[in-house]
Design a protein around this nucleic acid. Structure first.
Lengths: 154, 154
DNA sequence: TTGTGAAACTTTAAGCTTGAAATAGTTGCC
DNA sequence: GGCAACTATTTCAAGCTTAAAGTTTCACAA
């Protein structure tokens, strides 16, 4: 969805906005992906999962992860599998409900993530460098409200 | 990249913005993808390619497509392959340079796209419904300038 | 003309992604 | 207890995506 509007009319400005939004996020995403690969030999999805887990030292269920990351269940399974095989996260079976397992960062995973996250924050600062702090706040507010209005989830 | 900032500091607002941006575009993208599937049995990448071709009745080279859509060369190959096998686009060998071929929408592809694009525009209007036309213009402007400042491509 | 290097494209391997089907475990109702 | 409905997760097939390597063609200079 990167092409331009194909017609004029009432929805035209919104369509333009959507295309800009998508191009912007794709461009930044591509750049971040490339740097994650080059500098840390990792991927965006792995980073996302680790970021979520980093905020929840007590761990997260698979379904928590997929809900939070806005991706499907089956998707998370594969990413976590790979992270487990790399020793960065663990799946701890629970006594209470044996269908579920708590996913947690390992010590190594936590250290690894902290280093990557620092670089990542700098990259974002750089890539969004032409947006002033004020503009950033303003844009953030607009995006926040639009989304929460559209659908109840958050 | 859907998690929250992990620290405070100068880049914090930009990181917040990036996360909002990404969550917004992922949410909308997911919704559009689902509707394209349900209503037209197609996908976002196919739609993107067709949208690009619709704007260029004279056709596009594979490399034009990948540059325009911000995706890799090999990626476009696969998508166009599928569209060709569905009879929606053609690859016309050229006399001049036999490495290249002009990719064009077929009659059927063009009709098919027009119908989908109309629905698509309505969906975007609906999904961004809470953004006023003015806000949309303003946001678009911000996104446009930030991107063209960051890197020369357009 | 014949290399040589670059360009356009395809192929490949690995990983990401989805939606749907399958599996396993839980809960509530009789 | 037993069974139906539900929940959490994994598996699967198909398709998307990238980076890197391979193929074919072109341009052009010696």
């Amino acid at each position: 969805m990167v092409a331009g509007p194909t017609s004029t009319g009432p929805g035209k400005e919104r369509l333009r906005l959507w295309i800009r939004l998508l191009r912007a996020s794709r461009t930044i995403e591509a750049e971040l992906r490339e740097r994650l690969k080059k500098e840390f030999d990792t991927t965006l999805p792995r980073f996302d999962v680790m970021a979520a887990l980093y905020r929840s030292p007590e761990g997260m269920l698979m379904s928590d992860l997929s809900r939070f990351l806005l991706v499907s269940n089956g998707n998370v399974t594969g990413i976590v599998d790979r992270l487990v095989s790399e020793g960065l996260v663990t799946r701890a079976r629970r006594n209470g409900d044996r269908r579920t397992s708590m996913v947690r960062l390992t010590e190594e995973g936590s250290k690894s993530f902290a280093a990557i996250a620092a670089a990542h924050e700098n990259w974002v600062g750089e890539l969004l460098g032409t947006v002033s702090e004020d503009e950033a706040r303003q844009l953030t507010g607009m995006l926040k409200s639009f989304r929460s209005n559209w659908e109840g989830r958050e």
